[in-house]
Design a protein around this nucleic acid. Structure first.
Length: 483
RNA sequence: CGGGGUGUAGCGCAGUUGGUAGCGCGCAGCGUUCGGGUCGCUGAGGCCGUGGGUUCAAGUCCCACCACCCCGACCA
């Protein structure tokens, strides 16, 4: 009873999302706080998810004919200053090294917040002819941004990501690459992570520091706030121009031109979205396609004789499944089955199989789904095939559930009052037109803390009148408070 | 950097009018149980955030500092 009371003290997702989230991160052993404020340790359970993200998304990077490389962690301070908007955007959050080997450095070194500048200084050496283009590289690495307020996975001083960087001969090619990367993200985030997103262009005030334009995938968290899940930028010639990094080449027609560039990134932040979007009161829920362990087998026995035969059956089952699924047997002898059920549910393992004397007798196995708790018993010989179907179903149902939520919390609004109601009361996304002026955008942020998350590619068909000033609206955006 | 709050065992917390520290979880050992967090016994673990002051005596009162958390401004 006392144990029950203690357990029931657990924060609920609905009542206090952030407390619930922090508890899941700790209890599922995804991450822990590091000695340095704002930094976290990604523990094996969390890192295994990241490894799967890297493995699967890297395939998509390669499919875009982009190769992996590695550039230095340190960037000469002066490089940041070569692109005006870029340095203005990143200056407040830079970590800077001023001493090396006990000596004061002549030029301070910036610990990379992103690698445009260090990469493009090299690009300018490598690009001379139209034949050198396109140049496409990606790197998986860590970056540092000195944030004032941090939160595990969603915002930490240091985070892991991939950053793709390309240089092209024409604007059109850069446009296409920007969109190709965004499509890769959208596909990966929706189909593998089962997180629905809204895609579109950022407004000028929200775009990447130094970009021509920025595109992004926006996901909705359970509190109705938006989370930028991935971004892809068309940098135009802002970095390649002569006064910046001078990435110039001689074209087929002998003229000299500057390269057209893109950059795009996906970070460990997405793990935070994964936790929030799918999790429930019992803890984490992982979509099968990304789960480091997809199936856990829990043996159930009383006597020693039972134990022997049950463990043997578990092992046979393990051998039967291990080539098709990531599977583990929980043969811990010092905890009860009930404890194991809760334990694996907390860790979000998609499917649990139970084997006891009853199942052995009937040559069956009990299957329990993590996403909805449904239990069924099926014959052993049907197992691998049934399990494959089940995984597919779980993957789809998680996406469907999250999509429904996104849909239910997204509202088209015509007036500023409706707008405020969506943001402040209904806690969701507001689809609203606005005149395109930064002044109106600012006043919305001032009044509601909401920002234009994205101007969707498929523009909703609603009246194009600015919700603030009433002038005829240029475009329609999705507005929300953001993480 | 502004506003608010908290520092006592690994974690979550009690600690009365000042008298030298306790509970739950967890941890270790033994037994018991095992189809939804089994139960019992035994045990280990504390510079009470730091420094100073008041007092015969400070976790408790006073002062200063430090750290962390929450709310703002800034942000993938």
């Amino acid at each position: 009873m006392q144990k029950e009371n203690n357990m029931s003290r657990r924060n609920t997702k609905e009542k206090d999302l952030s407390a619930w989230y922090l508890e899941v991160v700790q209890a599922a052993q995804l991450a822990d706080y590091a000695p340095v404020k704002g930094c976290m340790v990604i523990r094996p359970n969390g890192y295994a998810i990241w490894e799967n993200i890297v493995r699967l998304f890297d395939l998509k990077i390669k499919a875009m004919n982009t190769r992996n490389a590695y550039f230095p962690l340190f960037i000469p301070m002066s490089f940041l200053h070569r692109e005006k908007e870029h340095v203005e955007g990143f200056s407040p959050e830079l970590a800077v090294v001023t001493i090396g080997g006990g000596q004061k450095l002549e030029e301070p070194l910036v610990v990379r917040p992103t690698s445009e500048t260090i990469m493009y200084s090299m690009f300018s050496k490598w690009v001379h002819s139209w034949r050198d283009l396109p140049l496409k590289v990606n790197q998986w690495c860590n970056v540092i941004r000195w944030e004032k307020r941090t939160f595990p996975f969603l915002r930490t001083l240091e985070f892991l990501w991939q950053e793709g960087h390309t240089a092209h001969a024409t604007l059109e090619e850069a446009d296409k690459q920007t969109m190709d990367a965004l499509k890769a993200y959208t596909d990966f985030i929706q189909n593998t992570l089962a997180i629905p997103v809204i895609t579109g262009k950022k407004t000028d005030s929200q775009k990447f520091a130094g970009a021509l334009y920025t595109t992004s995938c926006e996901a909705m968290m359970p509190d109705g706030k938006a989370l930028q899940a991935a971004t892809s930028h068309n940098l135009g010639q802002n970095f390649s121009k002569a006064e910046a990094f001078n990435i110039s080449f001689q074209n087929k027609d002998k003229s000299i031109d500057y390269a057209w560039q893109t950059s795009w990134g996906l970070s460990t932040r997405i793990i935070g979205a994964l936790i929030m979007v799918h999790g429930d009161e019992a803890g984490l829920i992982l979509p099968p396609k990304i789960a480091p362990i997809q199936v856990v087998i829990v043996p159930i026995y009383k006597t020693n004789e039972e134990k022997e035969s049950v463990l043997k059956a578990c092992n046979n089952l393990f051998l039967n499944l291990k080539d098709q699924f990531s599977v583990t047997v929980d043969d811990r002898d010092d905890v009860t089955p009930g404890f194991k059920f809760h334990d694996w549910e907390m860790q979000g393992i998609p499917v649990r199989l139970e084997i006891g004397p009853a199942e052995i007798r009937d040559d069956q196995v009990k299957i329990v789904r993590r996403d909805n708790g449904q239990k069924e018993v099926i014959a052993n010989k049907q197992l691998p095939a049934q399990l494959r179907i089940l995984m597919e179903q779980i993957q789809k149902s998680l996406f469907a559930r999250a999509s429904q939520y996104l849909h239910d919390r997204t509202f088209e609004v015509k007036t500023y009052d409706e707008f405020k109601e969506v943001i402040e009361v209904k806690k969701g996304f507001a689809i609203a037109s606005w005149c395109g002026q930064t002044a109106c955008e600012d006043s919305i942020k001032e009044a509601t803390k909401a920002t234009a998350r994205v101007v969707p590619f498929n523009q909703p068909k609603i009246q194009k009148k600015c919700v603030v000033c009433g002038k005829s609206g240029q475009s329609t955006a999705v507005w929300a408070r953001a993480y």
